[in-house]
Design a binder for these strands. Sequence first.
DNA 1: TGAGGTTATTGAATCGTTTTAAGAACGGGA
DNA 2: TCCCGTTCTTAAAACGATTCAATAACCTCA
Lengths: 334, 334
Amino acid sequence: MSASVKDVAALAGVSVGTVSNVMNRPEKVSASVSVRVQAAIDQLGFVRNDAARQLRAGHSSTIGLVVLDVRNPFFTDVARGAEDRAAEGGFSVILGNSDEKTDREATYLELFEVQRVHGVLISPLGDITARLRQLRDRGIPAVLVDRTSADTSFSSVSVDDIDGGTLAVEHLIAQGRRRIAFIGGPMEIQQVADRLEGARAAVAGHPDVSLEVITIDALSVLAGRAAGTRLVSRLAQDRPDAIFAANDMVAMGVLQALMMQGANVRVPEQIALIGYDDIDFASAAVVPLSSIRQPSALIGQTAVEILLEEAADPTRPPRQVVFQPELVVRESTA
Amino acid sequence: MSASVKDVAALAGVSVGTVSNVMNRPEKVSASVSVRVQAAIDQLGFVRNDAARQLRAGHSSTIGLVVLDVRNPFFTDVARGAEDRAAEGGFSVILGNSDEKTDREATYLELFEVQRVHGVLISPLGDITARLRQLRDRGIPAVLVDRTSADTSFSSVSVDDIDGGTLAVEHLIAQGRRRIAFIGGPMEIQQVADRLEGARAAVAGHPDVSLEVITIDALSVLAGRAAGTRLVSRLAQDRPDAIFAANDMVAMGVLQALMMQGANVRVPEQIALIGYDDIDFASAAVVPLSSIRQPSALIGQTAVEILLEEAADPTRPPRQVVFQPELVVRESTA
DNA sequence: TGAGGTTATTGAATCGTTTTAAGAACGGGA
DNA sequence: TCCCGTTCTTAAAACGATTCAATAACCTCA
């Protein structure tokens, strides 16, 4: 059906070894032969069969990436950073969306394993170090993304969510707020727990500041709005004067509830609001949202970099890279 | 590094052919041998090398999917439908995000070609039938998604956007609206042009209904809000009494502008609003948004189905499947 | 002219799985 | 006991690119 190196070699009047050299080590081939072979390749429309190449090489030139949610702009940015860095090294990234479901996560890891990918980047759902260890035993290194490894036997690239939480709440306090509410959950999500911990740390230094924790069961607009609605149904003096939402989706929901017909809470005058992730929507909200920005593309790039190093030298000790988040101030807290 | 069929065969005391049979045609193998082989597989942690399998088979058991924008919930739903249907047939889907950039699109097609994917699903950027024909010549069939093929030499699965536009505007008219505005653009996007055409068709039957077209240069929340802001700055009697936005993102932006502090337009009392796509956010908006729903997962499923048929029998004539969109009424027009 | 050194090219082996034709084992019937 | 038909298993040949040791071609200098 499609042409193989053999066909190219025959047409160009050289051996298959030479054809391979033309493609992979051009410096080993004389100019005249190189031209002839290239002509044959073009004429036949030859395209390398990656399966054969992989089989010989022992592993593919593909990197597998599993994210928690492709719809989340944070992860698409991570993916983009990873793709760009991978392309530089001649690798491509195949993207899997676990959608926060363990069975989907497992399916992708299986796919990557039979495909003998060069390595795996994963923003894991639960504790999958056992599975990753298995992969590593079979020659497939893994780097955790947006998650510090439970043990330190795997490299990871993440953002300091504790620090992010502190940043957010310190900003609220600096704006003169004293009754702060944290809205987020479920607490099983490490990132949520960390952001809350950071918030607590910020409050700890200020005896006159209180922190109320409002738990929700999903990081969604709907859950955020429900929580917001419950807040505005309180007497005005029982409401917080600032809200730190665990991510921007939740913040959007809260914002909607606050601005509702009946509620008419003014943001930020009566209640200030800050989110997390700095997604596109955040700046496009009715009241542009303050948020905590993570260097998403950089996370992807760095993860690929570490992965390639470990693939090249499996004895390299694992590294934990932690980036610092950044405060983005907009009208919702100004 | 990792165990091969040979190792399994040696451990189980059978030939490699038998090991292969255990995995691929269990009915050809006696129960006792099957058990022994399975035990050896488990003990060694054997995982099939897909590259070798592919090499032998001539093509992989993977389907490539290129979408315009992974962040768009419509496409993630399409992808989900495709994955599910593919999994039933023992195939997996690898997802590429062209992000509306031709070079990214080309890169993915190249990747799919060297990987000898079983077939390609693509929601194309421009006219890529020439490239797809090339792929088909090399044994890789393709199905267009969310786009009717320019020529009919490729199968396609899409939704009738003209019909969707008609549905939306007929609904507004049925609600007693007479001064309708369409907000959308750029008109180069086929889907936008079609939705407008459908809107025009609906208005055509009602001499007392007017349709104003407001062009924007991107289908984003921001562009929608800008257009909305311009609308509310008009005198009340010059405003439309209903708005049809080209998609839900735009509608969200328009909604924000209408509900703004200064504006205080009541939705739907003063202006009714309907969007397109029925994304999650639509039902979660401050005023839940009426919208036109597309059977996204079904599109993905159907596309895979057609693709697999064509891969099995390349002589099959191409098919054009067009689904009907569905009106979802919520508070924004009720 | 020929030895020695360099560079360019070849051919065969290899990766791990699937497939198929051929062979072994077994049982039943004559 | 022997033959024949099943059923199960084996061994070897593919798939296509890469690699490496071996060979060929070429050039330089004595």
